[in-house]
Amino acid sequence: MIEPLVTIRGLCAHYGSVKALDNITLDIRDNEFFALLGPSGCGKTTLLRSLAGFEAPTAGTIYLAGDDLLAMPANRRPVNMMFQSYALFPHMTVERNVGYGPARAGVPRAEVARRVAEVLETVGLAGLANRRPSQLSGGQRQRVALARAIVNRPRLLLLDEPLSALDRNVRSQMQTELKRLQHDVGITFVIVTHDQEEALSMADRIAVMSHGVVQQVATPEDLYRSPANRHVAEFIGRSNIFEGEAEPRGLRVPNIGILPGHGEGSYLVVRPEDIRIAPRGGLPSPVLTGTVVDSQFSGGTTVTSVIPDNIETLSRQPISVTQPGFPTFAHNTAVELAWPSHSAVIVA
């Protein structure tokens, strides 16, 4: 097995009496695009800042390629960070901002200039070397921050909510670009985000965090298809969740019987696109019956909301069903729902 680049073992951090990180154990592989995903206050930023050296964990270890990272001060770690605010030095030009790292490392002036020019080329900012941060657009500033963070060729690049300050159009463009860049420069990226779409679309693997605990580490597909627990299922994508008791054939629910599914636990997760919907009597083996309350067309797909008979979802919201094409059900239509056992998972 390949040795991971970063090994985090039993990491704990406290703010006063609040546990920000609770016994975090995590491996990050070399050359990986790794995302820390979770709602605000889940500890993802504390974990990132612990890697950078701006937080002192109270217990646990972090090793980077065999070196004890916690024993090194921030300025000695082979780790660079791109800050959420970009933190560009306002009194320096783009060139001096980007050259700041190499210059501090004692790289000769000509070599600094060469590296800066090269990295500005990589991020598509050649020609703006003499501008000041105040003369740049948001997207350009972000590229400068990125250039400054990769010019030192760190073993690990940390990105703190890198796209949150950008508007929608620039954001999706930068998502693609970050992914390409990570591939080109061959540096391990660790990105912190609260935006699941961002994490799902960019990361090779994602750690879902909540309340200072890592809930699950998996590829985007696995997170979506087999969430480790109810928290992950709720956080990743849209889902319909029912509570009951696991049995070999599915989840036993009072008044209804057995909902098809597989796995162990007391919550059944079924994704909107896995549910088949038809008018009453239209399905060979219906699982639930219900009434349509709403049908919304959202370009290519239609989301239908169904209030089921004799059962409630965990969130007490209608069941949502996604189908390709135009809405076919009027308000108050009596419908039947069904899903195959293999596409619904039972979790703790």
């Binding site: 950078a52 660079n80 800050f83 030095f89 700041y100 501090r104 030192n152």
Partner: peptide, 12 residues
């Protein structure tokens, strides 16, 4: 974070 960025980039 300006000061943190400076330390992050290797300055004491």
């Amino acid at each position: 974070s300006l000061e943190e960025a400076s330390e992050d980039l290797g300055a004491g």
